[in-house]
Amino acid sequence: MHTGIDELLEKYWHIPGGLVPLLQEVQKVHGYLSREILEKIASGMGISLAKVAGVATFYHQFHLTPRGRYIIKVCMGTACHVRGAAEVLFAMEDELGIKVGHTTPDLTFTLDQVACLGACGLAPVITINDETYGKLTPGQVPKLIEKYREEAAVVH
């Protein structure tokens, strides 16, 4: 079931400092890091599960729960903040019915906040997967989400 992990372990177990890139690559394949995966990595690297979990929980990039099909990142950088990013985030929470940092039960959307997307000229800005949406107002949020809901419904 955990395809590819053995190959990746083979690639990284002997490299000093290999744990972080190993976790990055495993997550790329599996989408998130389950407890079973962390255990497998710990025994494969010959280190404790506590050490692996410690690293996995330290960095924002690693996720221990499944992620949605669409990852919404709301930029909460300073430039976006002073141009009303919080309102956009609240509107997202209302529309999706989840709090920031969570995933909808149907695994369609994950709502994240990030420190800075670096597109300050477009503030407030969000990304949905690889698409960027700038100069957003809370009023535009429902329509935007609806578009993705429809897309998800077509694919299923």
Binding site: P16, G17, G18, L19, V20, P21, L23, Q24, G54, V55, F58, Y59, H60, Q61, F62, A115
Partner: peptide, 26 residues
């Protein structure tokens, strides 16, 4: 190239070094 994994504190040089060594970036 070493890619960070998302931790602001890793901009601090000793934390950054810890992170390259595969540890929590403290």
């Amino acid at each position: 190239i070493k890619q960070g994994a998302g931790a602001f504190v890793c901009g601090e040089e000793t934390a950054l070094i810890e992170s390259i060594q595969g540890n929590r970036g403290m």
